[in-house]
Amino acid sequence: MSDFTTSLSIAASGMEAQAMRLRHVSENIANADTPGYHRKVIRFEAVMQDGRRTGEVRTGEPELDRTELAKVLDPGNPLADENGYYDGSNVDLVVEIADAREAQRSYEANLRMFDQARQMSASLLDLLRR
């Protein structure tokens, strides 16, 4: 029975990590037009127990993408320098949409794994009751 529990916890940690990733992607998309905004990147870390990997993952602290900010030409903007440029954001909407799709598909795969393990454990309990 512990293998089923382990499978459930691995799948649940994957869903939680991908949900966090989607939150940061959404935040990046929402701030794509915010001057000076650095996109946030989330890293996954393996969960260790007694020096061994458990198969679970967790998210690390969000990091700021150090890619150079886009220079936007808008002489009328109050943030513009003497040449008419100001710092935009470094959010690329194509990259963010691709990240969102990948996170969504990974979440769904973990959800299917969770559901499969749940169904298998329920079937095992039904067999044991007979």
Rank of each mutant, 00 (worst) to 15 (best):
Val57Lys: 04
Glu82Asp: 14
Val72Phe: 02
Met1Ser: 05
His24Cys: 05
Asn110Ala: 14
Ala80Glu: 09
His38Tyr: 13
Ala17Gln: 06
Thr67Leu: 07
Leu125Gly: 00
Pro35His: 12
Gln104Arg: 04
Ala32Ser: 10
Glu45Asn: 09
Met120Pro: 02
Gly88Ile: 09
Thr67Glu: 08
Tyr86Arg: 00
Met48Tyr: 13
Val41Gly: 05
Arg129Gln: 14
Ala103Phe: 11
Glu63His: 08
Asp87Met: 11
Ser7Pro: 01
Leu73Thr: 01
Ala19Thr: 06
Tyr107Thr: 15
Arg58Trp: 04
Asn90Tyr: 04
Val47Phe: 14
Arg105His: 10
Thr5Cys: 01
His38Glu: 15
Ala30Leu: 04
Met20Gln: 11
Asn31Tyr: 08
Arg52Ala: 13
Tyr37Thr: 06
Asn83Trp: 06
Pro62Thr: 07
Ser2Trp: 10
Thr6Gly: 09
Pro75Lys: 07
His24Thr: 11
Met113Gly: 05
Asp92Ile: 08
Ala117Lys: 02
Pro75Arg: 03
Ser7Val: 01
Leu125Trp: 06
Arg23Phe: 01
Arg118Ile: 01
Ser89Ile: 12
Thr34Met: 07
Gly88Gln: 07
Val95Pro: 00
Ala19Arg: 10
Asp99Tyr: 04
Met1Lys: 00
Glu96Trp: 07
Asn110Phe: 14
Gly84Val: 00
Asp3Tyr: 03
Gly84His: 00
Ala103Cys: 12
Met20His: 10
Ala70Lys: 08
Ile10Trp: 00
Leu128Asp: 08
Asn77Ser: 11
